[in-house]
């Protein structure tokens, strides 16, 4: 098999074969719809959802999706900005890092998702607790990427900046930050996946809007086709966000 044939098999034949298997299993064994809906039913549901003709919990899919996206985007922006900020400070001030790193390590390893109920207790059922969860998930990967990136600037590039007597600002903007971009991006990509998981989980726990809420709603009311559609939608959302960052990265790091 040539490479392009292989690609074709993986991107078309395999998924269709899997869907076929799923369909055959449901049809032949007469699996009840609320346990496992057939792919046809799920597809129908998806069409209905995306056309906006059906409302669940009082809102169309697009409204739920918009809410979730706004949480992801806001949380991602706040989390990555503060992660970058602290990562920068720690990379530049080893003394500060020595003092705070044990605490950071503690919070970094703490399972944030398990803390979600606590966040709700502290910040309420609304937007704030959801943002806190997303921010706490985004913060660490970006902070660590920034630290790693700024610390791994090649020694000789620093020597060059000293030969040319660059100012601290010049060295930072012309050498250190561009050189740290690959590591920062690695952090951002991990963070984007975490942000998606965090936002959906937060909506799952509280509130009455968003993709996460729609999933609990579907589960609680035995709307299995809706639930399955939501799994597909959230997975696609995660992939889309990751791909978006990947494209941005390829564009920014075309020199690699």
């Amino acid at each position: 098999m040539t490479k392009s044939q292989q690609r074709w098999v993986f991107s078309f034949v395999t998924p269709f074969a899997l869907i076929g298997l799923w369909w055959a299993y449901v049809e032949l064994l007469n699996v009840p719809r609320f346990i496992l809906p057939s792919p046809l039913v799920v597809a129908e549901e998806l069409v209905k959802l995306f056309s906006g003709s059906v409302k669940h919990a009082g809102k169309t899919l697009w409204q739920h999706l918009g809410y979730t996206l706004s949480i992801i985007a806001t949380g991602f922006a706040i989390g990555s900005a503060s992660g970058f900020g602290l990562g920068f400070i720690l990379a530049k001030m080893p003394k500060v890092e020595k003092i705070v790193s044990p605490y950071i390590f503690f919070f970094q390893t703490a399972p944030k998702i398990a803390l979600a109920p606590l966040f709700i207790l502290w910040f309420g059922l609304g937007l704030a607790s959801k943002l806190v969860l997303v921010v706490s998930l985004v913060f660490f990967p970006v902070m660590i990427g920034t630290m790693l990136g700024l610390r791994s600037v090649p020694e000789n590039m620093i020597s060059l900046s000293r030969i040319l007597k660059l100012t601290t600002y010049q060295r930072l903007t012309r050498i250190e930050l561009p050189s740290a971009v690959p590591e920062i991006f690695a952090g951002l990509k991990v963070a984007s996946v975490q942000a998606t998981i965090g936002a959906i989980l937060a909506e799952w726990l509280s509130g009455s809007i968003g993709l996460g809420y729609l999933m609990t709603y579907a589960g609680a009311t035995y709307k299995s086709p809706l639930l399955f559609s939501m799994v597909i939608v959230t997975a696609l959302l995660g992939i889309l966000i990751y791909q978006f960052l990947g494209t941005l990265e390829r564009w920014l790091l075309s020199w690699r």
Binding site: M157, S159, L160, I163, P178, S179, L253, W255
Partner: peptide, 14 residues
């Protein structure tokens, strides 16, 4: 002062 290192030390993004 001009300095040439053993490696080129070019900035790969430029």
């Amino acid at each position: 002062v001009g300095f040439v290192f053993q490696e080129p030390v070019l900035l790969p993004w430029l």
